[in-house]
Design a protein around this nucleic acid. Sequence first.
DNA 1: ACCTGAACACCGTTCAAGT
DNA 2: ACCTGAACACCGTTCAAGT
Lengths: 252, 252
Amino acid sequence: MAAPLDNLPRKQREFQQREQLILDTAQGMLHEHGYAQLTMERIAEAVEYSKGTIYNHFSSKEDLVCSLCCRCVSNLIELFQRAYEYPGTTRERFAAIGIAYSLYHQLNPLDAQNIQIVKTNAVREKLSEEKQQELGALEREITQLCMNLVNEAIEAGDIARSENHTADAIVFGFWSMLYGGILLAQSDIPLEDLGFSPVIMLLWNNSQRLMDAYDWQPLSKTTDTDALFKKLCSALFAEEMCKLTQGESHHG
Amino acid sequence: MAAPLDNLPRKQREFQQREQLILDTAQGMLHEHGYAQLTMERIAEAVEYSKGTIYNHFSSKEDLVCSLCCRCVSNLIELFQRAYEYPGTTRERFAAIGIAYSLYHQLNPLDAQNIQIVKTNAVREKLSEEKQQELGALEREITQLCMNLVNEAIEAGDIARSENHTADAIVFGFWSMLYGGILLAQSDIPLEDLGFSPVIMLLWNNSQRLMDAYDWQPLSKTTDTDALFKKLCSALFAEEMCKLTQGESHHG
DNA sequence: ACCTGAACACCGTTCAAGT
DNA sequence: ACCTGAACACCGTTCAAGT
């Protein structure tokens, strides 16, 4: 009794399902064997379709990798939103966003590497117009979320007013510090040998310092920042923290 | 009258000269056509030797790229040393190192990309033991230089003493912020569209904030930081600043 | 209309054959 | 002893031939 018009929707549905299958498979391969092993040939083999079919879904390898990246940024936005909606001070909420960022990248180091790869211009210029738009929209969304929170803090008087205390300057300061710190942590630079402590805590402490520098109330000298860290983690990212400790026990 | 023993030294000399030729050529190609165009075949063609000869000098493409990276880090160390020896306060000298870092990466964006590539583990694990040692030694040297200056500042009482104010935490805070900021600036993320000001000044201002947060004397509120920026630039990096403005006038 | 896989261009790497 | 370049393995991409 299937009406002939069902034909098109079903085909479209199947097409979309296959696209998800390809992306899931590619992400699995990325997590399991790393970026170097992620080839179009292997993906095609794993999903049991031909290479031509993969190219029917993605105009290039860059296009596929960008799709993976968009998924990651979506996940990140979800974590950020959770932090944004935390019922606390603007400073606590912004600190929570920082934790979300650190935590996500620590939990998904290979995703982080992928996000990094998609940031390079060599990749961006090969993207289809459509994928560029999708990525751009997500980047605007996640940036805007942070900007909004900082503006909220400025308007509420939590951050001292000054010509230097603009939302873009403040957001960029934290973004660059966390981004740089995470990349350094994930690089093969032997940070420990060079005399550095674990990165997550270095970043947390430096973030707190930088917030103090912007006079973001309540200042860290009136706060037990270690306790705050734990409080935010368990209130917002209990599940993620769990995965993290599980991952560690695997190694131990 | 050439003694037979001259034979070996001359050959060694020619070998080293050729190695420099290969590296110069590779760097030129990197600057001119970008990383994607840097292939072993093209390098061999450009230096008019066969591919096998290139592999006589470098065990892999990664090995060659790492050699380029080592040159860059050496240049960076030279700039850092100039900043380190500046006759001013510890805060001014550390600020000058930050300028050196920003400036170098802005002047040589493709070198910066190369340094970034060599940081990835996929590359590092393909390096010869020898090249790993060379790179490690340079990384230790440049890190130590920064650590030394911060320790000097702590010992001189320029930085408030606190259990959180360890040299590694402080150095890492600035390193990650500058590193992350520069990578964001060089990525194809449309920062301007996202509402951000020019990166160099964002980094300078955020660095000043972070130094204030560490109570690094003299604080920025007692200083004209814009004037300090210009003073350090012209005192230490006049030549580099000149190249920078020349580069800009090329575009305009 | 859509899937397939042979074929192409390109790149890193090796090594037997030259000198 | 050292240089050479043909040859190999691999990968992204295309497209004529199938269904």
